[in-house]
Amino acid sequence: GATAVSEWTEYKTADGKTYYYNNRTDESTWEKPQELK
């Protein structure tokens, strides 16, 4: 099967917290998305 390329990108805020942003859905989350686990 084809490997899905994750749409999630990991970013850090100014105070060093990590969050994740999805370019396709324009969604952001503090929790690590399922695709990255």
Rank of each mutant, 00 (worst) to 15 (best):
K32G: 04
R24Y: 15
N22F: 02
T13I: 01
G16E: 03
W30K: 04
K32A: 07
T29G: 03
P33S: 01
T13S: 08
G1D: 13
T9P: 00
G16I: 00
Y19Q: 04
G1M: 14
R24G: 08
A4R: 01
Y11P: 00
A14Y: 03
T3D: 11
A14H: 10
N22I: 01
R24D: 09
E31D: 12
V5M: 13
Y11K: 14
T18S: 10
T13L: 04
G16P: 00
L36R: 01
E10M: 08
Q34P: 13
E35G: 08
P33L: 02
E7R: 01
G1S: 13
K17H: 08
A14G: 08
G16R: 00
W30Q: 08
N22T: 00
N23W: 14
W8D: 00
K32P: 06
K12Y: 10
K32H: 05
E10A: 09
V5P: 12
E10N: 02
W8F: 03
D15E: 09
S28I: 15
E27F: 04
Y19D: 03
N22Y: 02
S6P: 12
T29D: 03
Y20G: 00
A2V: 12
G1K: 03
A4E: 12
E7V: 06
T18Q: 04
T3H: 13
S6M: 09
R24E: 11
Y20N: 01
Y21G: 02
W8T: 01
Y21A: 03
E31M: 06
Y19G: 04
N23K: 11
K12A: 07
E27D: 04
K17S: 08
E31Q: 09
A4D: 13
Y11H: 13
K17E: 09
R24K: 15
N23S: 15
E27I: 06
Q34L: 12
T25Q: 04
P33W: 02
Y20V: 00
Y11A: 06
K37Q: 15
Y11V: 14
T9K: 11
K12P: 02
T13A: 08
D15V: 01
T29A: 08
Y19T: 02
V5R: 04
Y20I: 00
T13K: 02
T25N: 05
G16M: 00
E7K: 03
Y21I: 08
T18P: 06
L36K: 04
K17M: 09
R24L: 15
V5Y: 12
P33T: 02
T25A: 03
T18L: 10
Q34E: 15
Y20E: 02
A4I: 14
T25G: 01
K32L: 10
Q34C: 06
G1W: 14
T9M: 11
S28R: 15
E10Y: 03
T29E: 04
A2D: 13
E7I: 06
E31G: 04
K12W: 07
Y20S: 00
L36Q: 06
A14Q: 10
S28D: 04
G16D: 04
G16H: 02
L36N: 08
Y21W: 06
K17D: 09
V5G: 12
T3Y: 06
Y21D: 03
N23L: 07
Y19K: 04
N23I: 10
T9A: 10
K17I: 09
E7G: 09
W30S: 09
W30G: 06
E31I: 10
T18H: 06
D15A: 06
S6F: 08
T18N: 06
S6R: 07
D15P: 00
E7F: 07
S28N: 07
E10T: 09
T3E: 12
K37G: 15
A4H: 14
A14M: 08
E27S: 06
T13W: 02
K17A: 08
N22C: 00
E31V: 09
W30Y: 11
Y19E: 04
Q34V: 13
Y11G: 06
R24V: 15
S6W: 09
Y19H: 05
R24C: 09
R24I: 15
Y19R: 03
G1R: 00
E10G: 00
W8S: 01
K17L: 11
K12L: 11
T3P: 14
E35V: 07
T18D: 05
W8R: 01
A14I: 10
N23F: 10
A2I: 12
T9E: 11
A14S: 11
N23H: 15
E31C: 10
Y11M: 15
E27R: 04
E31K: 05
L36F: 11
E35D: 12
S28A: 13
T18Y: 09
A4M: 13
P33M: 01
Y21S: 04
E31A: 05
A14P: 12
L36W: 10
S28G: 11
V5N: 11
T9R: 10
E31P: 02
Q34M: 10
A14R: 05
W8H: 01
E27N: 04
E27V: 09
D15K: 02
A2R: 01
T9W: 08
T25W: 03
T9Y: 09
K37E: 15
E35P: 07
Q34N: 13
R24P: 03
W30H: 07
T9G: 08
Y11S: 05
A4T: 14
L36Y: 14
K12G: 03
T29Y: 07
P33F: 03
Y11F: 11
V5T: 14
Y21P: 04
N23D: 11
W8M: 01
S6A: 11
N22Q: 01
Q34S: 14
Y19A: 04
R24N: 11
E27H: 05
V5I: 14
T3G: 12
Y11L: 15
Q34F: 11
E7N: 08
A14T: 09
P33R: 00
S28H: 14
N22G: 00
K12I: 13
L36E: 07
A14F: 03
T29K: 06
T18M: 05
T9I: 14
P33Q: 02
T18A: 06
P33K: 01
Y20P: 02
T13Y: 03
L36P: 05
Y20Q: 01
G16L: 00
S28K: 15
E27T: 09
E27G: 03
A2S: 13
T9V: 15
G1I: 14
V5L: 13
R24S: 14
A14N: 10
Q34A: 15
G1L: 14
G16Y: 00
A2T: 13
T25L: 05
Y21H: 11
T9L: 09
T9S: 12
E31R: 05
T13Q: 04
T18R: 03
T25R: 02
E7D: 11
W30M: 10
P33H: 01
G16T: 00
Y20L: 02
Y20M: 00
S28W: 15
E7S: 06
R24F: 15
Y11T: 05
P33I: 02
T3I: 13
K32I: 10
W8E: 00
N23C: 04
E7M: 08
E10R: 01
S28E: 11
A4Q: 14
N23P: 10
Y19V: 07
G16A: 00
Q34W: 14
Y11Q: 10
W8Y: 02
E35W: 05
S28F: 15
P33V: 02
T3L: 13
D15M: 03
K32T: 07
G1V: 13
N22V: 00
S6T: 12
N23Q: 12
T13P: 00
K17Q: 10
Q34I: 13
A2H: 14
S6C: 08
W8G: 00
A2M: 12
